[in-house]
């Protein structure tokens, strides 16, 4: 429960920042997508059963912030989570290489899946054109983010009140 609460705070914090101050960071078309990278981070660090609910919750929160039809992002996030779970269990790579490669690969999949769904929902092939020119830079950016964000997120969700408030070096007898 504590972990889920921390994840909800994390998702809300980043979505608020991404919709305001960090909206054009690094550019208008390549966006900071911390929630998506965090879902992939859960795929890296959690067991299948314990990671599914956080991925679902983050998807719902992201859907609430997005103009896309409700549920689209939840579906995409859960799909990306499964991809990472499968990839990390099937193919072994060194940790930082794995973080970059699997985050970038999952991003490419998610961008195209999103584009296909939006094109279908809105009957507008422009979304496929948008995906075509942004999927590589966005995937590279997400991959680079993954190298840094995944270990940080792992540390973040392991936080507890004791860790935050207990004085360092204090030994209780």
């Amino acid at each position: 429960m504590k972990r889920l609460l921390l994840i909800i705070i994390w998702a809300l914090f980043w979505l608020v920042l991404e919709s305001t101050w960090l909206n054009s960071f690094p550019t208008n078309s390549i966006r900071l997508d911390m929630v998506f990278v965090s879902v992939l981070a859960i795929g890296f660090i959690s067991e299948i059963e314990s990671g599914l609910l956080p991925a679902f919750v983050m998807g719902i929160i992201a859907d609430a912030f997005s103009p896309a039809p409700f549920g689209t992002l939840t579906f995409i996030y859960i799909a990306a989570y499964w991809v990472v779970r499968f990839a990390t269990s099937a193919i072994y790579l060194r940790s930082y290489v794995a973080r970059f490669v699997w985050t970038a690969a999952a991003s490419i999949g998610a961008i195209w899946l999103k584009a296909a769904l939006f094109a279908l929902f809105f009957k507008n092939p422009q979304f496929l054109a948008i995906a075509l020119w942004r999927f590589l830079p966005q995937a590279a950016w997400n991959g680079a983010l993954g190298i840094i964000v995944i270990p940080f997120f792992k540390w973040y969700i392991s936080l507890s009140w004791d860790k935050i408030f207990k004085e360092e070096g204090l030994v209780l007898k």
Binding site: L15, S19, N23, R31, S66, P67, A68
Partner: peptide, 14 residues
């Protein structure tokens, strides 16, 4: 304007 859209695919303001 209080916020912008979080997805790059859409161009929406709040």
């Amino acid at each position: 304007v209080v916020a912008s859209n979080v997805l790059a695919e859409f161009k929406v303001l709040t």
